[in-house]
Design a protein around this nucleic acid. Structure first.
Length: 212
DNA sequence: ACTAGTTCTCGGGACTGGGG
DNA sequence: CCCCAGTCCCGAGAACTAGT
């Protein structure tokens, strides 16, 4: 069985175990003043184990500080067991991943909205420009009533087309709006709609008797 | 007293890097 | 290439502690 040893090892301390061969004879503890090779090796091993346990403990302590559900809730020094710290850390990471996903979806939806609004802005600007460059265009005073009536006719037409969009869920609505924008909010289509509405109003206004 | 969790020590397997 | 020191990791068992 081979294990993955991708960790980084600490540099070797030349002060330890520098004369292993010369100490081999000490294993019978014939010299009480100096430790035998076995004893020194055992002591070094104990220290290394202590160091390893400290590192593990430090890691758990850090997790307990970082994960809100693991933080101490009272002054009695309450501490979660390691298994709970691990489980709560896992839960917290999963929660953070979910939050990240939600925020990314929200950001994408907002970006789509920005694109749609820019398309609409461009359309309106082109309509205004086209109207201003029409031959015979004169600045005449239009009443608020007529303006409202024109706007209402345009919006009614748009709403009629918009009402065909499927709204069973958000993604369908989202896709439907894009399709609707591309089909019914094209500059040319809007221009045609506007022309129709204005023609109708022009005819209607001419046939109306002047108000007294 | 019992139980569960933690800490510590010890022994041992496995791996790495340097030296002969 | 082999040996060895140093290191890491793991399991077992003992000791300790805190809660019930």
């Amino acid at each position: 069985m081979s294990r993955d040893h991708s960790f980084t090892r600490c540099p070797i301390d030349p002060g330890n175990f520098s004369s292993r061969n010369s100490d081999d004879e000490d294993e019978t503890e014939s010299k009480p003043s100096s430790m035998s090779y076995k004893e020194r090796r055992r002591e070094a091993h104990t220290q290394a184990e202590q160091k390893r346990r400290d590192a593990i403990k430090k890691g758990f302590d850090t997790l307990q500080e970082l994960v809100p559900a693991c933080k101490q809730t009272d002054v009695s020094g309450y501490k979660l067991c390691k298994a709970n710290v691990l489980q709560k850390s896992i839960d917290y990471i999963q929660y953070l991943e979910l939050q990240k996903k939600k925020q990314e979806e929200e950001r994408n939806a907002l970006r789509r909205e920005v694109v749609a609004l820019r398309i609409m802005q461009t359309n309106y600007e082109q309509i205004v420009k086209a109207q201003q460059t029409q031959p015979g265009h004169t600045e005449t005073r239009i009443s608020d009533e007529v303006k409202f009536s024109v706007l209402q006719a345009i919006m009614e037409h748009l709403f009629f087309t918009f009402s065909n969009i499927s709204v069973s869920n958000f993604s369908e609505l989202s896709a439907g709006v894009f399709g609707w924008l591309e089909e019914y909010c094209k500059p040319q289509t809007l221009k045609e709609t506007l022309v129709q509405v204005l023609r109708r109003h022009n005819t209607y206004i001419r046939t109306q008797p002047p108000k007294k």
